[in-house]
Amino acid sequence: MPAASELVIERVSHSIQLSANLTDAQQNDIASLLELLPTESHNSDNIATSQSELNIKGFVDGRGLACPMPLLKTKVALRDITVGESLYVVATDPNSQADITAFCRQSQQSQSADYLELVVNEVTDHSSADGTSLQRFATIYHFIITKTDSN
Rank of each mutant, 00 (worst) to 15 (best):
P2A: 09
A4E: 12
L7Q: 09
L7I: 14
E10R: 10
S13R: 14
S13P: 01
S13T: 07
I16Q: 00
L18I: 04
N21H: 14
L22I: 06
D24R: 15
A25H: 11
I30V: 11
A31R: 15
S32A: 12
L34M: 08
L36D: 12
L36C: 10
E40N: 10
E40K: 12
N43S: 11
S44Q: 07
D45Y: 15
N46E: 15
N46M: 11
T49E: 12
S50D: 15
Q51G: 05
Q51V: 10
Q51E: 11
S52K: 13
E53S: 12
N55S: 04
I56A: 01
I56T: 03
I56G: 01
K57L: 03
V60A: 08
L65V: 04
C67W: 12
P68K: 00
L71P: 00
K73I: 02
K73Q: 13
V76W: 05
D80Y: 02
D80H: 09
S86P: 04
S86G: 03
S86R: 00
V90L: 01
A91Q: 02
T92R: 00
P94R: 01
N95S: 10
N95F: 02
S96D: 01
A102S: 12
F103E: 07
C104L: 06
C104F: 03
Q109M: 13
S110W: 09
S110I: 11
Q111Y: 13
A113D: 15
A113R: 15
D114Q: 15
L116P: 07
E117F: 10
V119A: 03
N121G: 05
N121V: 03
N121D: 15
V123A: 10
V123D: 08
H126M: 10
S128K: 15
G131D: 05
T132H: 11
S133C: 12
F137G: 00
I140F: 08
F143V: 05
I145L: 02
K147Q: 04
T148W: 03
D149R: 13
D149F: 11
S150K: 15
S150W: 05
N151R: 14
N151K: 12
N151E: 09
